[in-house]
């Protein structure tokens, strides 16, 4: 069975700045991968390449063995298999929490109104916000908004879910609720790639932790091994700073 996500020799430049310099990574079905690294190491760019928000300069990104640049591949369809949750939530401010979720269900998945509302309510319940269905994003706390965003991504039943520093914009007391939802997803078998600074989460929920620096993967290992026996100086320096 093909890996959910396969990055091969992935490179990405913005003008003269090469942000990714050859990334190889495979994510298996049900695997939870946490990506660590100092800011500017290329973590987010890698994630955005997996969702085709950025086009690789070189190398390839495959989802379920499908290369989006291949002929006859509809990138919008392929993208439906990859959900993404953003640092800034990116909820649609002109829609209620429920409508944020039903909009793609109806327009992309072409569900009927009734089906869409059913699914949306179920996903809101999953993230503990069943009672906020009719709230507008501005009426929700940051943590609640982020959980709606997770519910929205989940509702499309993606094969893999990407998290881009989803707790970084939250007040500390709101982080826990969001992480709890993510942990539940992880233990539920969801394939996840999580860019994060939450070492505790990585330690607890990840099957594998990837450490990136200066556009390359420096080390990857199960969390216990990576945190307790870092092999490179760069990772040791990084861990010294964040722990």
């Amino acid at each position: 069975m093909a890996p959910r996500v396969a990055l091969r020799g992935l490179r990405k430049s913005f003008g003269n700045l090469e942000v990714l310099r050859g990334i190889d990574l495979e994510v298996a079905e049900g695997e939870v991968i946490c990506v660590l690294g100092p800011s500017g190491s290329g973590k987010s760019t890698m994630l955005r390449c997996i969702n085709f928000l950025e086009e690789p300069t070189a190398g390839s990104v495959e989802i379920d063995g499908i290369d989006p640049s291949a002929k006859g591949v509809n990138i919008d369809r392929l993208r439906q298999r990859v959900g993404m949750v953003f640092q800034q939530f990116n909820l649609f401010p002109h829609k209620t929490a429920l409508a944020n979720i039903t909009l793609p269900l109806r327009r992309v998945k072409k569900l009927s109104r009734r089906e869409a509302v059913e699914v949306a309510q179920a996903r809101l319940a999953d993230v503990g916000l069943a009672n906020k269905a009719n709230a507008r994003p501005i009426q929700l706390s940051g943590g609640q908004q982020q959980r709606v965003a997770i519910a929205r991504a989940l509702a499309l039943e993606p094969d893999v879910l990407l998290f881009d520093e989803v707790t970084s914009a939250l007040d500390p007391e709101l982080v826990k609720d969001v992480l709890d939802v993510m942990k539940r997803l992880a233990s539920g078998g969801m394939t996840m790639v999580v860019v994060t600074h939450e070492m505790g989460f990585a330690r607890e929920a990840a099957d594998r932790v990837v450490f990136m620096d200066e556009g390359v993967i420096v080390e990857e290992a199960p969390p216990r091994e990576l945190f307790e026996r870092p092999r490179s100086q760069r990772l040791r320096d990084f861990l010294d700073q964040v722990l």
């Binding site: 928000l53 990116n90 649609f92 793609p104 327009r107």
Partner: peptide, 25 residues
């Protein structure tokens, strides 16, 4: 910019994202 990215990441086409998300705002 995040609004367009969120909409695209949900599988909407460019025109769907424009019409349903960006233009109304």
């Amino acid at each position: 910019k995040g609004q367009m990215e969120a909409a695209r990441s949900l599988g909407m086409t460019y025109l769907q994202a424009m019409w349903l998300v960006i233009v109304p705002q």
